[in-house]
Structures are given as structure tokens and as C-alpha cells.
């Protein structure tokens, strides 16, 4: 059975309408199966001030199976792989329910940034640091936020957007991909091509 497109369209409209939630979503391509989600780092955490991009893929079985989510922006957090952005969160695995949505999943990621669960780590090195030396963890996490998640002013963004648009991609998608890739054209292309 093909994906429930009607529900996904409703979900996207709902996210677009609800500007107060602090999460946004951008569809990549025409199939509604690939998107990029975006969330703000919660205040009073080392992620404050950062903008975090999340790669989203929907299976044909969605919403009966969870959406596949992975951080594109590099994050220093016990439940997020510092190498590839893989996320350890129960609702994205066996605790998924079709009553949940892309919006609630993105909000859950935001909540995860606020409350790490070091006993169920995705990244053992980060978890060890979190449990062993909390101030050091906070410092590293903040450093990563400053380095990778401050993408509001990408240097020379417009020129890079133009370049990608000339290759035949849509402007909106080029902007989101470049922001997610912190201005790296090669990584932006990989995002756009779904690599």
C-alpha cells in the first residue's frame, strides 16, 4: 500500500501554520518522502542559540512505522552520534505510535536536547564525558553548537544558492540544504541528492 499522502500533507500544513512551535519542515523533491526538519536549541542548555537540521525519510508504511530521523547538524549529545547524527530515542523506534506526528517527533528531539539520557547512549564517548565531567560536557557541547549550529549567516550564501539553482534545483531547497550543510556546497549537494 502506498504512503498516506493525505495525512503527510496535513501534517506539513499544520507545521507551517503553527509558527509558535519553533519547528519547521521543508520538503525535498516531489514525493513527500524526503524532508529536512529544523529546530532551535532549547534555552538554558549548551545548544541555546543553535539551529539544528534533521534529515527525515518516510517509509511507504508511514504512519504505521516511525519516520527515519538523523541530525544533519553535528551535535555533542549522549543520545546523538557525534559521527553520523544517528538518534537514540524510543519514540523513533519501538515506542512509535501512529497518533504521533512529524511535529511531535521534532518537538521530542528538542526535548531530548534539554534532557540527555546517558544511561541509554547512542554515543558512548559523549555519555562517558557527561557522567564523568558535566562541566566539560557542557563546554564541548556549546563549542559544537557555536561551530556547527550557527548557520544563520552563511558566508556568501547567495552566490552558492545561485550556483545550485543553476544546476536545476529549487531556490528554497537550495537555501535549506546550504544552511543545513553550514555553507558546504558538497554536503548541500549530497543532501539535495538524498545521498
Amino acid at each position: 500500500m502506498p504512503m498516506d499522502v493525505g495525512r503527510v500533507q496535513k501534517e506539513i500544513r499544520d507545521i507551517e501554520r503553527d509558527r509558535a512551535s519553533g519547528v519547521t519542515i521543508e520538503v525535498q523533491g516531489n514525493s513527500l518522502q524526503k524532508m529536512i526538519g529544523c529546530l532551535k536549541g532549547p534555552s538554558d542548555t549548551p545548544f541555546e542559540g543553535g539551529t539544528f537540521y534533521v534529515n527525515i525519510e518516510l517509509d511507504d508504511q508511514y504512519p504505521f512505522v516511525p519516520p527515519k530521523m538523523r541530525f544533519i547538524t553535528k551535535v555533542w549529545h549522549p543520545n546523538i552520534s557525534s559521527a553520523n547524527g544517528a538518534i537514540c530515542l524510543d519514540i523513533l523506534k519501538d515506542q512509535w505510535s501512529p497518533a504521533l506526528t512529524l511535529k511531535t517527533a521534532l518537538l521530542s528531539l528538542q526535548a531530548l536536547l534539554s534532557s540527555p539520557q546517558p544511561d541509554d547512549p547512542q554515543d558512548a564517548v559523549v555519555a562517558r564525558q557527561y557522567l564523568g565531567s558535566l562541566p566539560e560536557y557542557r563546554q564541548t557541547a556549546k563549542q559544537w553548537t557555536d561551530t556547527y549550529a550557527h548557520t544563520q549567516q552563511v558566508v556568501g550564501l547567495e552566490a552558492k544558492v545561485q550556483q545550485i539553482v543553476e544546476m536545476g534545483f529549487e531556490r528554497e531547497q537550495a537555501v535549506v540544504a546550504l544552511r543545513a550543510a553550514a555553507g558546504d556546497e558538497n554536503q548541500a549537494m549530497e543532501i539535495l541528492l538524498g545521498a
Partner: peptide, 14 residues
């Protein structure tokens, strides 16, 4: 409906 988000007075996707 909390699963398909269609009205109860309407139809689910299938």
C-alpha cells in the same frame, strides 16, 4: 481519526 487524520464522517485513505 487520530491515525489517518481524516474526519470520522469521511473515509480513511483506503
Amino acid at each position: 481519526c487520530g491515525i489517518c487524520r481524516m474526519p470520522f464522517d469521511g473515509c480513511p485513505p483506503d
